[in-house]
Write a protein that binds this DNA or RNA. Structure first.
Lengths: 371, 371
DNA sequence: TGACGCTATGATAGCGCTGTCATGATGTCA
DNA sequence: TGACATCATGACAGCGCTATCATAGCGTCA
């Protein structure tokens, strides 16, 4: 492949006679003070056109709308493209067309397993579509989101994918009039900017508490970390479920990121503060894993004397001993479907349903299966 | 923020008198059949220049090299920029300058915790530098890497960051003559394309085995999954260490991705096949977690009757009961330092050392602390 | 005082591509 | 056969910005 690229350069230089010397300087000078910035040293549309003996536009068309070019011409152009190893310049294309093939994605985290799965879905969603992904990481900071969104929007993306529904009013207004499709993921909402795919965190947390109640646990505590908007809504859910059952609120919350170590620490704190605690709903799975380890360290029998429910159903929940009950969320699906809906819209089609509730499912495992 | 954007549009249209109508059309038609693709509806350099009463070039300079513009002019331009809420068009900038602010990053996975940490380091590394990150995901497929690398290279990135040292000869040759700085991470190597930051997987795996030997474990097995090039080199390391100690090779390897569930399955398989096994080196931490769970399920006492060593020192290793000994690798650092070195090179400076061995550290914990 | 260098600014010509409109060639139907 | 539609192709202008070179203004020094 390389050989052909370099061959192309030679061909280019030899043909036009204007690239002499640039090819050589291409590498060394690029870093410091190159002689001339003009021309990139790569074959251009015009080079392909000259070689194929047609106009530049025809090449452009042959590449983008082959049906508008006669088969014979198309074939000659294809040969020229192959010979020069021509690759279109995306920047020039964007500038000229006013359209880009970049889909902007704004996520609150890259390290959190939850978003790793979303990200995988996103990349799988664009695979083969020709769209590129540009990722922004807000680190759970609303101000960072408010800064990134206009920045991304200014780059004329083909579409944008956002996390959650808590954009600032200013950001929201900007995006509503942005002129490209937008999808919000990870939450359910009645009033999306454009399209939305998610589930109810309130309902999911409520379901977790009700499951513990159904299993006969009564002195239920809750662990939470890094209370982003999704966590806040889960909190409303577990509080509602506990209050509905007439049970007191026993929470240990940390603003720090969720982790197994944090789970152990919070579980330890709550167990010490609330003797007789017999179950924990952990608003993230890594907290649940930590809680399980804390029980093991204290010699507490799970599930006989203590129930544990996690959230998100990460892979390791099933492998744990005992395996841990968790609320399964469709993270990969949200990323993938989000991109698919955007691509549909970019193509000018209306999605069947712009507001999708993917729901959740409580996966019952050994950690709450007592008696 | 939005208010100012929209205010700027009004101001723009009102002031120059040339944008009338564009402002209006900018939005509605954008999705389907816009009337005219020309002009984006956003203020341009020329608009700012007209408002400030200077030439377009002066505005361009004021933005990029403020020192070359007189303070008075600079101030007028700054006001015009603020009033119009002007944001430069990166595509046009790239096209005109032949330089881009995109750093291409090619990783084998986005979901693997290892690369999530690398990614975080990468994003932290570019924060505040003005560079953008473009991520490619090869899914551990060398062919996908061979496809992505030229594609990325063709987009005139400012630099590229690659994973590992196993690029195809063609890819390597292409990148060697690409003319932008390149860093390879995750591995140690004598012959980098340009710069390299990593550690010896061979040495690290060898150290893990030697640690088990030092703790008195003798019937040592090894678990591995998804044998990418890094895993292969670890494999050479553990094989060398075992052979050096005159011990037989007891491996359970899967081509599937590493996971806790996979760890349980492989541990189970090897324990059944090799009765009397007394330790496992798990070439990934999630395998180690699964191995620990399998021991718990079988009632095997760790570390007394069975030692476990993991690899990468993920956060949960410290929280596990017993806590799990693991080989710490500097994943975040590799991502971050990689970007920092690239940025240095883009700025024309030579890094102190283009070949960095970040090493590794065996973190001894309870899972191998017996007697 | 005039040659010289320096600073601040501008005019011009692109970067590589696509939208628009024009043109010639071909096919179709009455 | 001629009016008209259709198809394939091209010329031209321009997307928003920057590199290059030119120029005016100013201070400096012999």
């Amino acid at each position: 492949m390389v050989e052909t690229v370099q061959g192309a350069r030679d061909g280019d230089a030899g043909r036009t006679g204007t690239t002499q010397g640039r090819t050589g300087d291409g590498r060394a000078g690029a870093q410091v003070g190159r002689m001339s910035q003009r021309r990139s040293g790569r074959p251009t549309l015009a080079d392909v056109a000259a070689l194929a003996g047609v106009g530049a536009i025809t090449v452009s068309r042959a590449l983008r709308r082959p049906d508008q070019v006669s088969p014979a011409t198309r074939e000659r152009i294809a040969q020229a493209v192959a010979e020069l190893n021509y690759i279109p310049d995306p920047q020039a294309r964007i500038l000229a067309s006013g359209r880009s093939d970049v889909i902007g994605v704004i996520l609150p985290s890259l390290t959190n397993n939850v978003y790793a799965d979303v990200l995988q879905g996103i990349y799988d969603g664009v695979a083969g579509t020709g769209f590129q992904i540009q990722i922004g990481n807000t680190r759970y900071d609303p101000e960072e989101e408010a800064r990134l969104a206009p920045l991304f929007a200014s780059q004329r993306p083909a579409a944008m994918l956002l996390t959650g529904i808590d954009q600032t009013p200013a950001t929201r207004a900007l995006l509503e009039s942005a002129g490209f499709p937008i999808v919000q993921i990870m939450e359910k909402g009645d009033d999306p900017i454009d399209m939305i795919i998610g589930f109810s965190h309130f309902d999911a947390a409520q379901a977790a508490i009700r499951h513990l109640l159904g299993r006969g646990y009564r002195r239920i505590g809750v662990l939470g970390a890094r209370m982003d908007p999704r966590l806040m809504r889960r909190q409303e859910g577990w509080r509602a479920a506990l209050s509905e059952a007439g049970l007191p609120l026993r929470e240990a919350i940390s603003p720090e990121p969720s982790s197994a170590t944090m789970g152990r620490a919070l579980a330890s704190r709550l167990m010490d503060a609330e003797p007789g605690l017999d179950a924990l709903f952990c608003a993230n799975d890594d907290l649940a894993l930590g809680a399980l380890f804390e029980c093991q360290a204290r010699g507490i029998a799970v599930p006989r004397d203590f129930g544990i429910v996690g959230f998100n159903d990460l892979e390791m929940m099933a492998a744990a001993v005992p395996s841990i009950t968790s609320v399964q969320t469709r993270r990969y699906r949200m990323g993938r479907l989000g991109i698919e809906m955007l691509v549909e819209r970019i193509a000018g089609r209306r999605p069947a349903e712009p507001n999708v509730d993917l729901g959740f499912e409580l996966i019952e495992r050994e950690s709450t299966r007592r008696g």
